[in-house]
Write a protein that binds this DNA or RNA. Structure first.
Lengths: 164, 164
DNA sequence: TATAATTAGTTTACATATAAACTAATTATC
DNA sequence: GATAATTAGTTTATATGTAAACTAATTATA
């Protein structure tokens, strides 16, 4: 009999716009948790799934840094992440001719097979989740999130504890 | 000269509703990163800030579990989190008369002082961030996030790798 | 071409996160 | 009142996350 909270119940200290921000934060955490559990039979996290999806659909071969940038994964984090994925046979590091500093990252056949198993169920799940919203609302969410991302980026250098 | 990505650039594998979902996920991560940095002079994470805010504004005394539920922090995580906060003098564990299983968590004076320093700047920052949106848009975001939270909760038992 | 600056990735130390197994205390049920 | 079930919190093992210092390779520049 676990009590279910919603972000609006949580934030007794927040006014309406603060509440909206907490909503995005909170829902993001929920999605992360849910996705982790969704993939748990095959992958240790949703980050690994996203890495594999980016690798599958990217038009160009990607290095560790490029992969990290696209998925907001820090370079110091991507090392261990790819180590573990390499160890479990999902990806491969290829040396790059002409630049011995970096690697090209590639899905293995085994990685591709596993992605094959989870991709469609995941897409179905997303469809079902988002069926809650009309086309117009989906557009709203996309636009609002883009604007919020831009606002965060724009405010990045103005906070009280930055001294750059 | 770091390339800035937006969630809509990332998701070459996603259609419009998938993209919206990724937007919430991505923006959530951004907010978390940004907040961590914002508090870094005083606190090791935005989770610690949120714990302190909940403690400050809660009408009743909270136990570890109650605190964890409100902030989506797992019980096995809250232990270490409060250990560290206790060690750095932000909170205190009080034994509960009549129930020796649990603790009441309380801000220390030092914790209150630190919160005093960061709360207003944080509120100002949120205000500035959300000034991007009209009142109607703020309402939209709140409603959309609430609906998404409910949808996630509703689908929780239907995914392909659940066998409950 | 020597050297300075930059870039790619790793390592370290630490914080945050989960699941699962665990202890101790409380409550339910007979 | 004995026993079973539940609840609160901890521990362990492991994954994900950051910042900062580091190595090695490449590029810029004098």
């Amino acid at each position: 009999m676990e009590k279910k909270y919603c972000h609006t119940e949580l934030v007794s200290f927040a006014d309406r716009d603060h509440e909206a921000l907490m909503g995005v934060w909170w829902t993001g955490i929920l999605l992360k948790k849910r996705a982790k559990h969704f993939f748990s039979n095959f992958l240790s996290s949703e980050v690994q799934f996203n890495i594999m999806m980016v690798l599958k659909y990217s038009e160009k071969t990607l290095t560790q840094s490029e992969l990290g940038e696209q998925l907001l994964v820090d370079k110091s984090n991507i090392t261990g992440l790819l180590d573990r994925m390499e160890k479990s046979g999902l990806i491969r590091r290829l040396s790059v001719p002409g630049d011995r500093r970096c690697y090209h990252i590639e899905l293995t056949d085994s990685g591709r097979e596993i992605l094959e198993k989870v991709e469609q169920p995941y897409r179905d799940y997303v469809k079902k989740l988002m069926a809650t919203f009309s086309a117009k609302e989906i557009d709203d969410i996309n636009r609002y999130m883009s604007r919020l991302e831009k606002a965060v980026a724009a405010e990045e250098s103005t906070a009280f504890n930055d001294r750059s």
